[in-house]
């Protein structure tokens, strides 16, 4: 039996918007720690890992670990019926085949109830080790969103170079080239906009911009984003939330240094 209550409707809505752009269906793995999700995109080159820790819910109860197989488009349709200020309660029985969602609006005494059919999903879980990355860039999520959008107009892949001075995103396309460079600690006064770099070693990697742009659907979840990179391992793009995170992993493009 799972029962979890969220104080704001906007959070699950934003999460769903961020995840459903990458994957179709996924298991929500519920345990006493909280609710987690891990799934790869169709091409298996990107992975999203979501964690909502139990502290984020009030109350949270999960007697036994449960995997709730959900079609994300369907779930987002139901969540669209919730107001941003609604209190959302989700419930599932141990052997049930539905996920029930209740949206309560205290202001106008409105209660809406929905049931989403669950599905059996064979999921492949990848064990992701804690990695010490060569370079970790923390920056404004809006800035990252803008860079991906701007450079995506020019090319499909972006080269990211991190040095101790700053981080440079550069593209080469048919129409020409472009680059955006963010200098380290450019904005001390505005914490949200500062670019911070922890560097063990310079890195220079290529990534698909279409995928990065897809990840920026999570921008509303956090004002900050961190990009963690090491040579020839997947990039980690992380948006931290109050009680949890959404992490994207993306395989680098290898052999495209031109």
């Amino acid at each position: 039996m799972l029962e979890a209550r969220l104080q704001t409707g906007s959070l699950p809505k934003k999460i769903l918007e961020a995840v459903k752009e990458l994957i179709n269906d996924a298991n929500f793995d519920c345990s006493d720690n909280g609710i987690a999700l891990q799934a790869m995109d169709n091409s298996h080159v990107a992975l999203v890992a979501l964690l909502l820790r139990h502290e984020g819910f009030e109350p949270y109860r999960c007697d036994r670990s449960l995997a709730l197989g959900v079609n994300l488009v369907s779930l987002s349709k139901i969540l669209r019926c919730a107001g941003n200020d609604d209190i959302i309660t989700i419930k599932a029985d141990d052997n049930g085949d539905v996920l029930s969602l209740t949206f309560e609006n205290a202001e106008n005494d409105r209660i809406s109830e929905y049931e989403l059919k669950l599905m059996d999903i064979d999921s492949e879980h990848l064990g992701i080790p804690d990695t010490a990355y060569d370079a970790v860039v923390q920056m404004s999520s809006n800035e990252f969103f803008r860079i991906c959008k701007d450079l995506g107009n020019i090319s499909d892949s972006v080269q990211i170079d991190v040095t101790k001075e700053g981080v440079k995103f550069s593209v080469k396309g048919e129409l020409g080239t472009g680059s955006v460079t963010l200098m380290q600690t450019a904005n001390i006064d505005k914490e949200d906009e500062a670019t911070l770099i922890e560097l063990q070693q310079n890195v220079s990697l290529n990534f698909s911009l279409k995928y990065l742009t897809n990840f920026t659907k999570a921008t509303p979840l956090s004002t900050r984003v961190s990009l963690s990179m090491s040579g020839e391992v997947p990039l980690l793009v992380e948006y931290k939330m109050e009680a949890g995170y959404i992490r994207y992993y993306l395989a680098p493009k290898i052999g495209e240094d031109n």
């Binding site: 459903k20 752009e21 990458l22 994957i23 179709n24 790869m40 995109d41 169709n42 091409s43 298996h44 080159v45 990107a46 992975l47 995997a67 994300l72 488009v73 999921s123 492949e124 879980h125 990848l126 064990g127 992701i128 080790p129 499909d156 892949s157 290529n206 698909s208 279409k210 995928y211 742009t213 897809n214 659907k217 391992v233 997947p234 992993y249 993306l250 395989a251 680098p252 493009k253 290898i254 052999g255 495209e256």
Partner: peptide, 28 residues
């Protein structure tokens, strides 16, 4: 597929190895 997935379907993944070649599979 959602709009985002349709865009990704067009993305070139040449030179990108599947993530399972970086991370070991875990039995669910």
């Amino acid at each position: 597929m959602s709009a985002g997935q349709r865009k990704l379907a067009k993305a070139s993944t040449t030179g990108m190895k599947p993530l399972s070649s970086f991370f070991a599979k875990k039995s669910a």
